[in-house]
């Protein structure tokens, strides 16, 4: 390997690190996500409580008074909209770190070639980078799980209505929630097979990156330079 190749490899290493560390940035937003979710649940409960307590009515110009309490149109639609808005907010919060272009903070140093590489090795907080990678991996698992749960929820709702219209509506068989849930899980596994595989490969790459950096860091420490 010559100097030019080494510089290119270090540039790629930083790019790979920056890309992976986006998950850590996304993971650092989990408290915000928790607050949004908590707010949505509380708001939904408040709407439900208020409509039931006061038996509220709303004026619709076309249809006259519509009861929105438990005996009327119901609170399903407002709550669904509320959770829809919450889901959109959560998506925006978690997705934000991935919308920015990948920057390479080592570029300035790498202009100096091998001296720049020495500077990077010497000045980088390797322990900090390794810790951030560990957090990125945890955040990645969390985000992947949330995504799968969200997909499961959407498919469950779609299947629930489809089942209701087709099986219950036509044949008069009552809805079996276990069947709907099982169907949703099977659909997730079938449709998300590629995503699950990709997630596994991504995790493997993250582990590999941590192992390589740890080795590099210990070699540098042990070299007694």
């Amino acid at each position: 390997m010559d100097e030019k190749e080494a510089v290119e490899k270090m540039r790629d290493l930083r790019k790979s690190l920056e890309t992976t560390l986006r998950y850590e940035k996304s993971g650092s937003k989990f408290p915000q996500v928790f607050m949004v979710t908590l707010f949505a649940v509380l708001a939904a409960n408040l709407v439900s409580l208020a409509s039931n307590l006061y038996d509220l009515k709303t004026l619709n110009p076309a249809m006259g008074y519509i009861q929105i309490g438990s005996n009327g149109v119901g609170i399903g639609i407002p709550v669904l909209i509320l959770f829809g808005v919450a889901a959109l907010l959560v998506y925006r919060i978690l997705h934000k770190p991935f919308t920015k272009p990948v920057e390479n903070s080592w570029d300035e140093y790498l202009k100096e070639g091998i001296i720049g590489i020495i500077r990077i090795i010497e000045e980088s907080d390797w322990e900090g980078i390794l810790l951030s990678l560990k957090k990125a991996k945890q955040a990645f698992i969390m985000i992947s799980s949330l995504t799968i749960l969200l997909e499961l929820g959407i498919i469950f709702v779609i299947l629930f209505f489809a089942y209701g219209i087709l099986v219950t509506g036509i044949f008069g068989i009552p809805i079996d929630l276990y069947v709907v849930l099982l169907g949703s899980v099977l659909l997730i596994v079938a449709l998300g097979d590629r995503t699950i595989k990709q997630s596994y490969i991504e995790l493997w790459h993250m582990d590999n990156l941590v192992a390589e950096l740890r080795w590099f860091y210990f070699e540098f420490q042990g070299a007694g330079i």
């Binding site: 390997m1 100097e3 080494a6 490899k9 091998i114 990156l209 390589e212």
Partner: peptide, 10 residues
Amino acid sequence: ILKHVGKLMF
């Protein structure tokens, strides 16, 4: 540097 950067796999 060249030896160890060369060995890095990612």
